[in-house]
Simulated assay, not measured.
Amino acid sequence: MFSVTVRDHMMVAHSFSGEVFGPAQKLHGATFVVDATFRRPDLDADGIVVDIGLASQALHEVVGALSYRNLDDEPAFAGRNTTTEVLARHVADTLADRIAAGALGEGARAVIGLVVTLHESHIAWASYERSL
C-alpha cells in the first residue's frame, strides 16, 4: 500500500458538555496540526498516489473553513461535542467528498483509504480512518 500525507493546521474555539471534560466545559481555544494521509494499492501512470499540491490545497480549504470559528456556533456540530475525534472524522468525510467530486484530480479516484490525524500537542492526538 502506498501513501502520501499532507499537513496543515487550524485554530478553533469550542466548549464541551459533560463532567468528563472538566475545565474544558468552558469556552477555550485549541490549535491542531492536521495530517491527511491518502492510501492506494498502486501508483498512477505518473508514479504518484495523489497530486500533493491538490491534496494540500483541499486540506487547507477544509481546515480553513473551521479555523478562527467558535465551533459551538457551527450548524454542522449542533448538539455535539467537537472532540478531537469528532473533528478528525469531519475533516476526513469532507476530504472524501472532495475526492468524489474530482477536486483532487481524476487520479485521486483510485484512493481507497484516508486517515486524518489531529495533533492536540506533541504528546496527544486522535485519528479517524475511513475507506473510500
Rank of each mutant, 00 (worst) to 15 (best):
G18N: 11
G18I: 08
E19L: 06
V20I: 12
F21C: 03
F21R: 11
F21I: 04
F21Y: 15
G22I: 10
P23Q: 08
A24W: 06
A24V: 00
A24M: 07
A24L: 12
A24C: 10
Q25S: 12
K26G: 11
L27K: 05
L27I: 04
L27D: 07
L27G: 10
H28Q: 12
H28P: 02
H28L: 14
G29F: 03
G29L: 04
A30I: 11
A30M: 13
A30D: 13
T31Q: 08
T31W: 03
F32H: 15
F32I: 04
F32P: 00
F32S: 07
V33S: 10
V34P: 03
D35N: 12
D35G: 08
A36L: 08
A36E: 04
A36T: 04
A36R: 00
T37F: 05
T37Q: 11
T37K: 05
F38D: 00
F38L: 01
F38C: 00
R40I: 08
R40H: 03
P41Y: 02
P41N: 13
P41K: 10
P41W: 04
P41F: 05
P41E: 15
P41L: 13
L43C: 05
L43Y: 04
L43E: 00
A45T: 00
A45P: 01
A45C: 01
A45Y: 01
D46V: 01
G47R: 05
I48M: 09
I48W: 08
I48C: 08
V49A: 02
V49Q: 03
V50M: 04
D51G: 05
D51K: 02
D51N: 14
I52V: 15
I52G: 01
I52A: 09
G53S: 08
G53H: 05
G53D: 12
G53T: 11
A55F: 01
S56Y: 01
S56G: 15
Q57T: 14
A58L: 06
A58E: 11
A58N: 06
L59S: 11
H60E: 11
E61G: 03
E61W: 03
V62P: 02
V63R: 13
G64D: 02
G64K: 06
G64E: 05
G64W: 00
L66R: 06
L66K: 08
S67Q: 07
Y68N: 15
Y68I: 00
Y68V: 01
R69S: 13
R69Y: 04
N70L: 07
N70W: 02
N70E: 07
L71N: 08
L71I: 03
D72R: 00
D72E: 07
D73V: 08
D73R: 14
E74C: 14
P75V: 14
P75H: 14
A78P: 05
A78H: 11
G79E: 07
G79R: 10
R80C: 09
R80H: 13
R80L: 14
N81C: 09
N81W: 03
N81L: 00
T83E: 09
T83F: 10
T83S: 15
T83M: 10
T84Q: 09
T84I: 06
T84M: 06
E85N: 09
E85C: 09
E85K: 07
E85I: 07
E85Y: 04
V86Y: 12
V86R: 14
V86I: 12
V86W: 07
L87M: 12
L87V: 07
A88L: 10
